[in-house]
């Protein structure tokens, strides 16, 4: 047998994909060239970082009661926003599922979800601060919007992937709409819904530490102030507190997931 190329090619050439990769590569090179990346700047930056990190240690926990108060508020924002956001996501996600709802209902619900997803939580927080004033309520509202954008969308997608055979069987018993949802739909998506919800809770805990930067309550405000005063040791203390809370939140949500999944 000779090793020459076979007369018939077993695979189709995907020209579209080849062109796509090439365009991406060209754009990456172009973007790098316009953003003024130089080796010189990178080396200078490393020196700044050394000074900065040096001034962070040892962390300054002198104002621990202020840190604790800020963290407590952040956590409250996260829990309230998660609870309300998840609760609102259930009906919105259900209405957005195209396999269960008529077109105009699902497109309306999808519009609401798209609006909730359009902006980063910080931008939404700025809008709420301007609209209803400084404080934790603005933060809660902003994270409720973020929760709906994430959970309702994934919940709708999960419902669109369910087995309609199981739904059909429940419907055939003469069950009403809500009973079909409770017995035919929810059992199929509940475990995934719990997964999305705990993930969003994690995410809300992290975001709740940030909305304070724009005045929407929580630990973000003292963190921002400490940065502006160059109190890097206080910054370090706050960052350590955030890491601790985020870590605990993750452990808790993993536990919750384990209780519900099986």
């Amino acid at each position: 047998m000779s090793a020459s190329a076979p007369a018939r090619s077993p695979f189709a050439t995907n020209w579209g994909a080849r062109v796509g990769w090439l365009v991406l590569l060209v754009y990456v090179v172009y973007a790098t060239s316009t953003l003024d990346f130089t080796w010189r700047r990178f080396v200078d930056g490393m020196e700044h970082a050394q000074v900065f990190l040096g001034r962070m240690f040892p962390p300054n926990f002198e104002n621990w009661d202020a840190i604790l108060k800020g963290m407590k508020e952040s956590l409250e924002i996260a829990v309230l926003a998660s609870f309300t956001g998840i609760l609102l996501s259930l009906p919105i996600g259900l209405l957005a599922a195209r396999n269960l709802m008529p077109g105009w209902v699902s497109w309306t619900a999808r519009g609401v979800i798209a609006l909730a997803r359009a902006f980063h939580p910080v931008i939404v927080a700025i809008i709420f601060v301007k609209a209803i004033g400084f404080g934790a309520i603005a933060g809660v509202m902003a994270l409720i919007v973020a929760s709906i954008g994430f959970i309702a969308k994934l919940f709708a997608e999960a419902i669109e992937e369910i087995s309609l055979k199981q739904v059909e069987a429940v419907r055939a018993t003469g069950a009403g709409f809500m009973n079909v949802i409770f017995f035919g739909v929810l059992p199929q998506v509940l475990a995934r819904f719990i997964g999305f919800s705990t993930y969003q809770f994690d995410s809300n805990v992290r975001n709740s530490t940030m909305v304070g930067i724009v005045g929407a309550g929580g630990i973000g405000a003292p963190l921002f102030v400490a940065f502006q005063r160059f109190d890097y040791d206080v910054v370090a203390a706050i960052l350590i507190a955030i890491i601790a809370v985020v870590f605990i939140a993750e452990v808790v949500s993993t536990r919750i997931q384990r209780i519900f999944s099986a």
């Binding site: 087995s163 429940v170 419907r171 018993t173 003469g174 069950a175 017995f183 059992p187 509940l190 475990a191």
Partner: peptide, 29 residues
């Protein structure tokens, strides 16, 4: 529909519910 029972080729049980819950779903109407 409550008065018409149906048995399916692929059983169409609600997979994540118990046998008892599946039986009781016959009373959902």
């Amino acid at each position: 529909r409550r008065r018409i029972g149906m048995v399916f080729q692929e059983y169409n049980l609600v997979e994540r519910l118990t046998v008892m819950e599946n039986l009781l779903s016959g009373r959902l109407g």
